[in-house]
Every structure is written in structure tokens, then in C-alpha cells.
Simulated scan of single mutants.
Amino acid sequence: MLASEKGFPEKKGVGPQSLDDLAEGEPEDPLAELDALRADRDQYRDRFMRALADAENARKRSDRDRREAEQYGGSKLSRDILPVFDNLKRALEVVTDEQRASNKALLDGIELTMRELISVLAKHGIEPITPEIGDRFDPKLHQAMFEAPVPGSKAGDIIQVMGTGFVLHDRLLRAAQVGVSSTPKPKES
């Protein structure tokens, strides 16, 4: 049964075409068309590679940001808690032996709270900076509160420690407050 007998119109020009008919639709220079296709391919490959590199950079950046947020996200809270440490430390430093004997339970509670605070800070990567007298001044970790010539010391030696500093992993939260020896004045003759 033919297509026309079924009620469908006959399609013309669907059958085999001659080589002349095919050649009419092609450009005159097949090498030029091939070069254009290669240029398009190279352009799309370049775009693809750039998009791939951008996606990889974005992934790396988000991983780095996530790690930093995990490690350093609590730094503001940590800085706000450091005065609590300072106040507990000052409270324990000013207690006399007489007060220690009469208020033993209270002072034991303050010392226990201090130890627990230090433990919690360490658990979260916060470590104290505790310089000693005679150590070298390090501007990355210490803040010089004053400078004074002290006989028997070299310039840049720590001569007094006034406050504990803290680091969060490898970042400075607060510098240790210290007094630093300056160059001793020469004796006048």
C-alpha cells in the first residue's frame, strides 16, 4: 500500500539525491570550513578548561574557608573570655597566707575554676604565652609595655611579665604584656 493510498501526502525529494545536489549545499573551500570548526573546537575547549579550573579553585577556596572557620571561628568569643582568666589569676595572686587559711574552700573553688578554664581553652586550641624574665623579646608574641635600662641585662631581654598572652592554634589572640630592657646608659666620667 502506498502512502497516497493511506491518505498521507507523498513526500518529494526524500529519496536518494545525486552528488550534484549534495555538492550545492557545501561551501566552496572545505579546508576553510575545517579550520573554522577546529577554531570553534579550540575555543570551546579553552572555555571548558577555564570553567573546570574555576570550579576547582572555588572548591579549594571553600575547603580552606571551612577549615579556617572550624579553627578560628571562635576567636572573638575566645578574646572575650580572656578577661575572665585574668580576673581569676589576679584573685589568686593577691590572696595572703592568712586569707588562704581562713577561706580555704573558696580559694580551692577559684583554683579549680581556673584549672577548668585553662583545660577548656586548651581543648579548643588556645594556649597561653608565658614568657619568663630573661627571655628575648619577640614582637610577634609580646607587647612591650615599657622599656628601661637594667644593669646586668642585654637590650631586648624581658625584665618583667605583666600579662599572659594567648594563641589560637597558630594565630595570636593576645600578646603577652612585658617590660623590656633597653641599652644601659653609659657611665659618665
Rank of each mutant, 00 (worst) to 15 (best):
S189V: 10
E70M: 11
N57T: 09
L37P: 00
F8K: 08
L172D: 13
S78L: 05
N87C: 02
V167A: 12
E132I: 06
P27H: 08
L82I: 11
D54M: 13
V84D: 05
E111Q: 01
G73S: 01
Q99R: 13
L52Q: 11
E127L: 07
A55T: 11
R100N: 11
D157W: 08
L52M: 11
Y72W: 14
A101E: 15
S102R: 14
Q71S: 09
F146S: 12
F8M: 06
V161T: 01
V180W: 04
D42W: 12
F166T: 03
D135N: 15
E26R: 13
L22E: 13
L106S: 09
I158F: 00
E93W: 00
F166L: 07
A122S: 12
M162D: 07
L106N: 07
V167N: 10
I110M: 00
A122M: 08
L106H: 03
L31R: 04
K123V: 08
A155N: 06
R100H: 14
P83G: 00
S75T: 02
A55F: 06
V167Q: 10
R45W: 08
I129W: 07
P27S: 14
L112R: 04
A39Y: 03
L173G: 06
P184Y: 04
L172T: 12
R64H: 01
K11S: 05
E33K: 14
F8V: 07
R50C: 08
A155F: 07
H169E: 15
L106F: 03
T96R: 06
D63R: 06
D138F: 09
Y44R: 15
G74K: 07
P186S: 15
E98W: 08
L82S: 05
P186I: 15
H124K: 03
